[in-house]
């Protein structure tokens, strides 16, 4: 079971997931809103397909990266409230605390971010060490591409829109910024 801070992050990811899977514009939500209210999906079998099955995936949409096991058919229905939905997801996550979630993200971001920088700079990934300024690898023009690649790669985690101006300094600072955009309550 997730702690309260992790539950908040899961709630935000879950809400974001619902809006994206339904192709709906984000709006203010409340715990009593149902999945049908948020997504417009009209039948339990559509919710089962679009919410339950996609939530299981560890792709750019789903939350498979934090789930211990897949959901069973029928766990999410049109009338499932947001509060219950978040509770269902929270009860299934592999992590216990917000700190653990942040640590996992740190590892993942560091690895992926280094790879992005190395690809753009056409250098070996081992050269992209934590304390080296990113500017040593990418030019001003390439920074736009890096922001775009980061936004794409981390889109499912980003709870706040990525701003290119935030990505300044060393590799470590970039990673810290990215993680803060993902875990800030």
């Amino acid at each position: 079971m997730a702690d309260s801070a992790l539950t908040i992050v899961i709630r935000r990811r879950f809400v974001k997931f619902l809006f994206r899977v339904a192709n709906r514009t984000p709006k203010a939500v409340s715990d009593s809103d149902t999945i049908e209210d948020l997504t417009g999906f009209t039948a339990d079998d559509v919710v089962d397909l679009q919410v339950r099955r996609r939530l299981d995936d560890d792709d750019t949409l789903g939350m498979g990266d934090v789930l211990a096991s897949n959901f069973a058919p029928g766990e999410f229905r049109t009338g499932t409230t947001l509060a219950r939905g978040v509770g269902i997801v929270s009860s299934r996550v592999t992590l216990q605390t917000h700190g653990q979630y942040k640590a996992v993200l740190q590892l993942r971001m560091r690895k992926d971010f280094r790879q992005i920088v190395a690809t753009i700079a056409n250098v070996d990934v081992s050269a992209v060490r934590d304390e080296r300024p990113v500017d040593e690898f990418v030019s001003a023009q390439e920074r736009d591409r890096m922001v775009s690649d980061c936004a794409t790669a981390f889109d499912k985690f980003l709870l706040t829109k990525l701003d290119g101006d935030e990505l300044k300094g060393t590799v470590r600072e970039h990673v810290d910024t990215l993680v803060s955009l993902m875990v800030v309550r």
Binding site: S4, A5, I8, D31, A83, I88
Partner: peptide, 12 residues
């Protein structure tokens, strides 16, 4: 509100 304990999340 960010400094306050989060509102109780209804667990299933």
């Amino acid at each position: 509100g960010n400094l306050l304990p989060p509102a109780a999340v209804k667990q299933p």
